[in-house]
Design a binder for these strands. Structure first.
Lengths: 199, 199
DNA sequence: CACACTACCAAGCAAGCGCTTGGTTTGTAA
DNA sequence: TTACAAACCAAGCGCTTGCTTGGTAGTGTG
């Protein structure tokens, strides 16, 4: 309820498990899940490869945990952003800002893993995580519907399709956007808003 | 110039090499490049795994060939679509239709491989293919600039950012769009056009 | 002290990987 | 019929993979 911290403890922090997850997010993003070996992972945190299986029962479980953590964390951030916005327009901007921050900011590596390593999950893990994502997507569709009722979005636009287009647009920014240029995330979010609202 | 065939011969057809490339596109898309073994690939075309290396010198070369072929093919399709369009608005629509067809139509599997398996290429292959893509992207940016000069796109919109957003939006449709529903590619392209032009 | 617990190491197993090799079949054309 | 190259097989090499096993420090609690 306090606005002080943007996040309530993502991952164990400096626990062995937390360090493993952080290293995994980094390696899975840069090399991909398949190309990353448990030996790479062990070396990154300074232990033997076999010791990993004291903390996780399989390599795939590490992937699932990285994804689960980033979903929970960013759903929370999105809800906080929504609560602070007053108009339909600003709610949309808040969602876009949240998603672009998730992808290009602090949780960027884990988000990229979530998006681009989905296939490496077992079907059971996919099902489990899809349940978590459902709530996240609901927030989006409700906000888009509210904006359409307010007349911000033309009637002939399909909101489901629009949301999928936006998800692709923001997710892909991971591959080209570099925050050190003149284009900060706030400007990027505004450019993304033009995709929804002509203004 | 005839509208009869949408394509001039993509891949060798039923040559051993062509069959290998077609099977590779399918397997690389469904399982990913890393998870696909040369033994899978060989089984798919009915030969021994070692025989693959009579046609390609490495597994990575197969990936590069799949990508090269789909770039060349779809650049051609896009140019044909552009040539047949009369107004800036219809040129944009032609580009979106071409890209969405490439991703969700006949070349969909190879396109998905091009987009999502990029990382598995060697740096040399990446550089080589980037040259081919440069021309493709140039067509996009030129068309967007023409539309902006014609007043279809607001001055404060960044065309480079817009193109990247659109690339993400269309590319991602591979993951959710199913052509058998009520939403055909033409309607999908129109929904995508709303991202660019308010109308 | 004894006990339990977390975190870890050292070693290695069974399986799977991309790719090589040497030789054989098959199609084509002189 | 002969010649030759493309296409392919059978076997396996050398290496890497995810993961297991048995044991050992370090720490806190009674």
């Amino acid at each position: 309820m306090t606005e002080s911290s943007a996040s309530p403890a993502r991952s164990g922090g400096d626990s062995p498990r937390g360090r493993l997850l952080a290293a995994a997010a980094h390696l899975f993003r840069t090399r991909g899940f398949e190309r990353t070996t448990v030996r790479d992972l062990a070396q990154a945190v300074g232990i033997q490869s076999g010791s990993i299986f004291h903390h996780f029962k399989s390599k795939e479980e590490i992937l699932r945990c990285v994804m689960e953590e980033v979903i929970r964390f960013n759903t929370l951030r999105m809800e906080q952003g929504l609560a602070a916005a007053d108009s339909p327009r600003n709610k949309l901007l808040a969602l876009l800002r949240s998603e672009l921050t998730a992808i290009n900011g602090d949780t960027g590596e884990a988000m990229a893993v979530l998006i681009f390593e989905w296939r490496s999950l077992t079907p059971e893990s996919q099902e489990y995580l899809l349940d978590l994502r459902a709530h996240y997507e609901r927030l989006w569709l409700d906000t888009l519907a509210e904006a359409q009722r307010a007349g911000l979005i033309a009637e002939h636009r399909d909101l489901f399709v629009l949301r999928r287009f936006l998800a692709g647009a923001t997710g892909w920014s991971h591959y080209w956007y570099r925050p050190d240029g003149t284009l900060d995330i706030e400007k990027l979010a505004r450019q993304a808003l033009y995709l929804v609202i002509p203004e």
